[in-house]
Structure formats: C-alpha cells, structure tokens
Nucleic acid binder design. Structure first.
Lengths: 131, 131
DNA sequence: TGTCTTATTGAGAATCATTGTCAATATGCC
DNA sequence: GGCATATTGACAATGATTCTCAATAAGACA
C-alpha cells in the first residue's frame, strides 16, 4: 500500500513548480532552503516512485546526472532542453516513434526503447553573452 | 604535442577488436586479462582522447555508464544497440537530423545537439530464453 | 647516440551521485 | 486509540570517474 506523506507531497509540489528539469540534489537543496527538512535519500526514493507512477519524467543529462520533471502529459514524448537554464519544451513526434520502431524491427530487434532528446541553448539564453 | 605510447596503442587496438560498446572498466579488465598491464586511469584518459579526436564514439547507457566504441565512420550517426550483448548497428538518418535541426530552430534554440539512440534486444539475444 | 624537456603513466586517494541499512517514526485501517 | 507496516532519515557503502603527483619514457635536438 502506498501512503501519503508530508515528504511525498513536498517533493511532488516542489517538482511541479519548476518549469524545467532538476537534479535530485538541486531539488533537495531547494526544499531545504524553503525550510522543508527531509532527507536526500527520501528525495531520491520519492522521485523514483513518481517516475514509476508516470507522474514524472526522468532523463540523463550529457554530464551523467539524472534530471527529473513533473509530467504534464502521460503520453510518450521527447524533449527539447536548454542546457543553460533547463527550460524544456515537450515534443510529440509520431514520425520519430515510427522511425524507431521500424528501424528496430528491420534489424530483428525486439523490445525497442528509444532515447531521443535535443539539447541546445534557448532563445533567452543564447541572447545573453554569458551567464 | 601528442606522443604515441604503448598504452595508447593497446587501448585503441583493443577497442577496435570489439564489435559493440564497452565500458572503460570492461576494457581495462580485458587488457589486464591479456597481460597488458596498464592503469585504469590511463584507460579513461586514452578513451577520452580518442573521443576528442573523433576516433571513438561515446554514449551513456540507460544505467548511467559511459560506453565506448571505435568509430567506423567519422560522419555523424546514431546507434541501434542490443542491451544484452552490446552489439551495435550504426544508423544514418538524415530525416532525423533535419527534424532535430528544424525543431530546435522553430523554438529559437541555438547550438542544438541531439541524442538519438535505440536500445533493444537483438535477434540473437531475443531468441535465447535467458542469458 | 646521449641529453633534456615535458607529455604521459600508474597507484591510490578523492569526488560525487546514487543506493543500501536499520532503527525510529508516522500513516491508514480497525 | 491501537496496531501492522510503509516510510523516513542519518549515515555508511558503492561504484564510476577524476585528480594528484612523483616516476617514467617519447621525441627533439645537438
């Protein structure tokens, strides 16, 4: 049975207020800054369970950190992510889905799962000479 | 100035003999097993420099490990990777390149860089009940 | 060929995100 | 309110990767 706890709510609502992807560490830092004391391990566990329930997205940044984000849609989708500010645009691209599927089956692969994400500097961040 | 060393050759040729992606740790293990003694740090450094010179590919596996592979083409490409045996098919897909580029510019992103990889079980591995 | 400069190596320590441990606590059902 | 147990928190443990720094060896030059 899954219980509702203060901590779970705190993590979920903190995540919901952030427009882009954040690392577990950062989220933990923000919660602590707000006065919400809770363990780092709890943040990790809660994020993992949110991902499990499809209530959050997870992705690995180019430098190997796991980043999390509240899901706005439960449909499968991809992301366009600003590498400076973390701002994210959700992308749905049926063409890509189909391409990945047919590619996999052409080569005899089963259980295909794909990773399609685009990183760049968003308009606002590219305008700034240097953060 | 870049010097040629026994270790650099050993890493490069070991990598060239492996058909799929391997982790630095695994590669180090294989080299040691062959009697080629060299430090783990050296393997990491050498792999990083190979990637720098576009002589090797790097990708992050779903469980967060960095995997390396000798490049067979210097053109930009993607991968279809067997999650069981590591066997890899190189994919060139201009359609995907164009899609990523236009997607990025539509949203005002600059310096876009994309991650497009497909993981699955290859024909041989799906045939096996369980490795 | 011998010498010299310095890129490179190796062993282990250090880092850093993440996960495991386990006693203490709090939740939801009765 | 009481109870069984899911969850928490502090910290240890893990594991990949990077850093440190003295020792070594590659390549240039005489």
């Amino acid at each position: 049975m899954r219980r509702n706890t203060r901590q779970r709510d705190a993590v979920a609502s903190a995540l919901a207020q952030i427009p882009g992807f954040v690392s577990a560490q950062t989220l933990h830092g923000q919660l602590k800054a707000q006065g919400d004391t809770l363990g780092l391990a709890t943040v990790y566990r809660t994020l993992a369970s949110l991902v499990d329930d499809d209530r959050a997205d997870i992705l690995t940044s180019p430098d190997g950190e796991n980043l999390y984000r509240a899901c706005t849609t439960s449909r499968h989708h991809h992301h366009l992510i600003c590498r400076t500010c973390g701002m994210t645009v959700e992308i749905e691209a049926d063409a890509v889905e189909q391409w990945a599927q047919s590619l996999a089956s052409e080569h005899g692969f089963t259980g295909a799962h794909h990773v399609v994400d685009v990183f760049g500097d968003c308009a606002a961040c590219s305008a700034q000479p240097r953060a």
